[in-house]
């Protein structure tokens, strides 16, 4: 899907447009990237990048300089370079939501966003919800309702719920199901997650 050769060997030309065209990701995932792309200045769509490049990413309020290839995803930077491993890599076509982060406040699959696309945006990962001693209400809600088992999908669900409540503090059951429908759990924790969301929706969080 993500085309590109080793930068040292001349490299093929990579554009975001080609990436989007070639993406095999699910509609939901593709839509998220398309929207993100649409928000960028028109000139960005014609930018041609090749070779490794140092960029600055703003993650959880701090700027980080990282070297990336054009094919490097935001997920790879967060996990491998910044050691923010709360966003999980299911090594899929990224339709599972385990890699959900907030990009300029919007729930985004980090696996389908290129690191280059994330430049200049505010990225928030699940680690930021731990707080100093007092975790985010979404986190405490998940713990209270035992809305986790193996926990591998949990950070993605937490971020998806945070994004949902930021947008709509009092969602209905249908809005909760739609808002969290982009995430997959294998152990079967949906019941606790739903109860957690309903409680937070009542109280506002």
């Amino acid at each position: 899907m993500v085309q590109g050769k080793d930068p040292g060997s001349g490299g093929v030309i990579f554009t975001r447009r080609n990436f989007l065209k070639g993406s095999g990701a699910a509609m939901a995932a593709t839509a998220a990237v398309t929207q993100t792309a649409a928000q960028q200045p028109a000139a960005a769509a014609t930018r041609v990048v090749s070779g490794a490049k140092e960029i600055t990413l703003n993650v959880n309020g701090a700027d980080h300089k990282v070297a990336v290839e054009p094919r490097t995803t935001l997920l790879e930077v967060l996990r491998d370079k910044l050691n923010l491993t709360g966003c999980k890599d299911l090594k899929d076509v990224y339709v599972d939501g385990a890699d959900t982060v907030l990009v300029d406040g919007k729930a985004t699959y980090a696996g389908v966003m290129l690191a280059l696309q994330a430049e200049g945006k505010k990225i928030r990962t699940v680690e930021s919800l731990r707080g100093d001693g007092q975790p985010d209400p979404v986190v405490t809600g998940f713990v209270k309702h035992d809305a986790m088992q193996c926990g591998f999908c949990t950070p993605g669900f937490v971020m998806a719920m945070r994004a949902l409540l930021d947008k709509q503090p009092n969602p209905t059951l249908d809005e909760i199901r739609e808002g969290l429908g982009g995430n997959i759990c294998r152990c079967g924790t949906y019941d606790g997650i739903t109860k957690c969301a309903l409680e937070l929706a009542k109280g506002g969080a």
Partner: peptide, 10 residues
């Protein structure tokens, strides 16, 4: 370990 799991620290 609930908070650790839910915040990516696990």
């Amino acid at each position: 370990d609930g908070v650790d799991k839910a915040t990516g620290f696990a």
